[in-house]
Design a protein around this nucleic acid. Structure first.
Lengths: 107, 107
DNA sequence: ATGATGTGTAACCCTTAGGTTACTCAAATA
DNA sequence: TATTTGAGTAACCTAAGGGTTACACATCAT
């Protein structure tokens, strides 16, 4: 199986995003997570694996339980990519501003 | 066909992200976009449709051509969701700070 | 009017995604 | 030691994703 470590891919599934929302309150074991969703535990296990590989969560073993918590890394990667576009919006606003200035001048 | 208007889903495909990167420089027609990728024009057409439905791009018809440009809306939706987690990191940092303060006190 | 050009869409194919059940195994508990 | 509990994985199924080619159609150019 090819492991997909792309956080964008990991975030594409609404269920996985819901898991992350849940983890924003507190770290949770696999079973606890599964208890809050309508899908089976193995399905949750798969989702958790994908989130982990994408760097969106950390997993800490405690006996036979595995506790999941949010990991900043994956989030940063996505944020960084999105921030790349900021200069585009800035340019666009600047153009609008220039246009307005021009109009004032011609009055 | 069920239309998926989820920007997270739209961003999951690396090819679509590449299209967005391309559009950050300038607005482009479908054919121009297709010329920059190894996949067929109909494939590009599909990707563009998905990006459009997700609110990530705007499409402006000009004769028989369709010009694509970035749209802030879809990006904002994603950013907003990501920002939700900021308070989690803040809390985590605060806890670290508290821990450090406690250690200083006991010295 | 004719032909070239830009684009959307339908039909199809193969791969990936996401779910299930059944199984295994290690850790906790009686 | 025997049993329960938490979790990973394999095998399988169906649906969705992403690609292709072939076609239709409107717009521009001749």
């Amino acid at each position: 199986m090819r492991t997909n470590t792309d956080p964008f891919h990991a975030l594409a599934d609404p269920g996985r995003r819901a898991i992350l929302m849940m983890l924003s309150r507190d770290k949770q074991s696999i079973n606890t997570i599964a208890g809050n969703f309508d899908i089976s535990r193995p399905a949750i296990s798969k989702h958790v694996k994908i989130l982990h590989e994408a760097g969106l969560i950390l997993i800490k073993d405690s006996g036979r339980e595995r506790y999941c918590e949010l990991n900043l890394d994956g989030f940063e990667e996505v944020k960084k990519w999105l921030n790349f576009f900021d200069k585009f919006w800035k340019t666009k606003l600047q153009n609008l501003e220039d246009l307005l200035n021009q109009q004032y001048k011609s009055e």
